[in-house]
Nucleic acid binder design. Structure first.
Lengths: 120, 120
DNA sequence: CCCGCACATTGACAACCGTCGATATATCTC
DNA sequence: GAGATATATCGACGGTTGTCAATGTGCGGG
């Protein structure tokens, strides 16, 4: 068997070895997909401002007409952004009379923040 | 000047009043734009897995060939994603010999997480 | 000096995203 | 019920994004 004839196929493995997987498994593709949906929801300047406006608001809620003006966007566009944030589970929508009040889902942003801090 | 002739333009303001800005200013458009650039960088399932793989790696660094296989993506695509993360200030790139080692910029993810937790 | 390897860059293409104008829906008032 | 108001939805358009195949670049070994 030529016990250690030496330099057979393991000759240059000691130093320049790259491409050895870490052993620790990656985040699953499904979890990455789910998380990316939430991050995509806030990864837009206008939606970041929407969240900022709502959380800085007096009663921690705001209706569409409160948000249209400071963002300098049309009402359909603001409504579209709010729907994305609601679908992502970040905002809560409550209709009272003619108005729709949006508030931040408790813990939603903290959960996302936890994803970023946990690996470190 | 008709000091207070009364109900001039402020007649129906008492009850169903909506659309009153909160007073607290929104996040500035510039800051929102800058933050969205960083959030966009991680708001992709494959880039989330890249960050996860690197931070779970033994030496907290990995080269491209370590990352191509677990993501089942071509080498140019992985290189493209890594460049986006580097440009966003989330990853650090260090070339040693033929290989390029990527590591997470210390504090980068925590800074992003802070943006999400601070308003609450 | 030439070849192989790891990685970066380019160009192309389909899919998706943000925005708007127009229109639909729902609720309150008279 | 008619009209006004707040919001949602639709259709369209330009811009961006993720992916790949092909090619370029830089370093190390024989």
């Amino acid at each position: 068997m030529a016990a250690n004839t030496g330099l057979a196929t393991t000759e240059m493995v000691d130093e320049g070895r790259c491409c050895v997987p870490s052993g620790a498994p990656a985040m699953s593709a499904e979890r990455a997909e789910a998380l990316s949906r939430q991050f995509k929801a806030i990864a837009d300047p206008n939606r970041l401002r929407l969240v900022s406006l709502i959380s800085a608001s007096a009663e921690n809620e705001a209706c569409v007409c409160d948000l249209t003006e400071p963002l300098e966007l049309g009402q359909p566009t603001v409504s579209h952004h709010l729907k994305i944030l609601v679908d992502a589970g970040i905002l809560h929508r409550e209709k009272r009379g003619v108005w729709a009040y949006f508030s931040i889902v408790p813990g939603a942003l903290d959960a996302l923040a936890g994803v970023l801090t946990e690996p470190k």
